[in-house]
Design a binder for these strands. Structure first.
Lengths: 205, 205
DNA sequence: ACCTGAACACCGTTCAAGT
DNA sequence: ACCTGAACACCGTTCAAGT
């Protein structure tokens, strides 16, 4: 346990700690303990905890897939890739939401997203409109999914809502959970892709 | 400073503290100090900090607007209402993302959202598909907006990305910031509403 | 260059005690 | 019923000191 403390080893230990025990469990002291080192040793490799967390997020960001020529398929793959990354480390989601992911692979992924939208026939402001709308859907869905996966089960005092005041909500209750998370994601994603296709058709090339 | 410590007063002080100094600044000790009371006095009104934060979120949740009969206008108003609520207290967003908002007004708002989608001609699983997709977009947009508003300005080491590797991104740079946040939100919202109309048209009544 | 130890200024929460 | 004071088990970070 001497000198084998590298940035990569710290990041890996931090990720493992967050995955197993949650974001609150990640403290510099506890992380140091897991690495067999004093907490203050970490400050020789990262200026502060925020920088460490950014490095953890950057580490789990995958390389974007190769384009196939079919923009719809490419954007679907990019969407799935993003969702898989988050769902592999869901407890890191609050960090990812709090600031955009930096780093080379994040930039390459953004480039691939833009490139797919360009192949859909978009450019300029319309392309950015489509990108931000699609990206908002994907990000928002991941938040909703995570709320749904952790909420109703762990929380004891769920459903304090009186259904007499909310007849429509009550009537929809039996449809809740009819689809799984994968299915539901693809339905909303198809709606985004259709909207993008419509936008491309109505935009002068 | 005796006995005038009510749940409402605590919630109001907590909200003011978060709005002014940020979520990290909200500690039971500091909140107590702001109220002229020991931190431990707060535990007589709230079981813990999480419950206090939930009460703060519930407090800023507005009553849903009255329906007009035009589902598209109603859903637009509900979207704007949601966005205004978040943007009035942006530093509370991480709390809102971490768990769904409970309480009577949140339930009434959900009911109004479902009711608008029903008036669009949807029901059952298709209605829930539309709702979750629309909700994901709105929520995701708010995250992106907040990232955009706080990120590039405050952070000194922005744009470490080499644009040689990312030509499409570089080419789009001059279109960034072409639209303001309100405009951009409505463009994506219109795409959601169009997609909902298309879904309703293709779903058997 | 890399790590330690002590210290500073904080946390959330419990619990017995006061009024 | 409502609040206080002391205590417990923690935090992130700075800084001088060691090797």
């Amino acid at each position: 346990m001497r000198g084998d403390l590298s940035r990569a080893a710290i990041v890996a230990a931090a990720l493992a700690l967050v995955d197993e025990a949650g974001l609150d469990a990640l403290s510099m002291r506890r992380l140091g303990r897991a690495l067999g080192v004093e907490a203050m040793a970490l400050y020789h490799h990262f200026p502060n905890k925020v920088a460490l967390l950014d490095a953890v997020v950057a580490a789990i960001t995958p390389e974007p897939p190769e384009p196939t020529g079919d923009w719809r398929q490419d954007l679907t793959t990019l969407s799935h890739r993003y969702r898989e990354t988050v769902n592999a480390h869901p407890r890191l989601l609050p960090v990812m939401l709090s600031r955009p992911t930096r780093g080379a692979r994040a930039a390459a992924t953004l480039e691939a997203q833009y490139a797919a939208l360009r192949r859909a026939g978009l450019d300029g402001s319309a392309l950015l409109d489509a990108h931000r709308t699609w990206g908002s859907y994907v990000l928002g869905y991941l938040v909703v999914e995570q709320q749904g996966r952790t909420g109703p089960h762990t929380d004891a005092e769920w459903r304090p809502v009186v259904s007499a005041d909310t007849p429509v909500t009550a009537g929809l209750d039996r449809y809740q959970g009819a689809r799984d998370w994968d299915e539901q994601f693809d339905i909303g994603l198809a709606m985004q892709l259709d909207a993008i296709a419509a936008l491309a058709a109505s935009t002068p090339a």
